[in-house]
């Protein structure tokens, strides 16, 4: 027997994904509720602009709604959603003038009030990196992906990914040297 919509939040994700694949809107809404924070944080690290990040995160979920019937393995929903998020971000970069956007985002993120000081510093430092370097760094440090996975997701050569991460890490180390010895967070998503 299928769970009632108000009990979806208790169900295992694979089951909820299976229901969403059949066109169940309540099940899909539950998936959005579960994954929104992760995808929004990922997009925020990518673009350093909370409003744009939320717009892009919405696009990611819309893409997911359009294509969820094509998802063959419900237990791979997270990885599939991450792939959609990265492809949405890459599409956004292709459609927009990267230099102009980088400048606008730099201005925009300075005015944001709902971030922690550490988060703001990190995003400011990330904004100084080129788009591809930033994406590689975010996928490595935020998502914990290995170089080969990043190369596969971004369609960049493995050597390029490695050099982007090396250069990006060096740059961030310089800019964020004040945070050396920061204690780890007690709880992270």
């Amino acid at each position: 027997m299928l769970p009632a919509p108000n009990h979806y939040h208790q169900g295992p994700e694979a089951l909820v994904v299976g229901l969403a694949r059949t066109g169940d809107r309540d099940a899909f809404a539950e998936l959005v509720r579960r994954r929104q924070s992760w995808i929004r944080n990922l997009m925020r690290r990518c673009c350093s602009d909370t409003a744009l990040a939320d717009d892009l995160a919405q696009q990611v979920f819309l893409q997911a709604w359009r294509k969820i019937s094509q998802l063959r393995q419900p237990d791979r929903f997270g990885a599939w959603l991450k792939r959609l998020a990265i492809s949405t971000w890459l599409q956004y970069l292709r459609k927009n003038d990267a230099l102009r956007d980088a400048e606008e985002h730099h201005e925009a993120h300075l005015a944001q009030q709902d971030k922690t000081s550490m988060g703001m510093d990190l995003d400011q430092a990330l904004a100084t990196l080129s788009n591809t370097v930033r994406l590689c760094i975010v996928l490595s440090y935020h998502e914990g992906l290995i170089h080969a996975e990043i190369a596969e997701l971004t369609k960049l050569p493995l050597g390029t990914v490695k050099s982007h991460i090396r250069r990006g890490t060096q740059r961030l180390q310089q800019l964020l040297s004040a945070y050396q010895g920061t204690p780890p967070a007690e709880e992270s998503l």
Partner: peptide, 25 residues
Amino acid sequence: DTTLQTLFANAEQDLVEETFTSQVM
């Protein structure tokens, strides 16, 4: 880099959904 790893982990916020889900739907 462990410092960067810690910074990324600490910068992660538990974002409340508020209107996000209803906007998507």
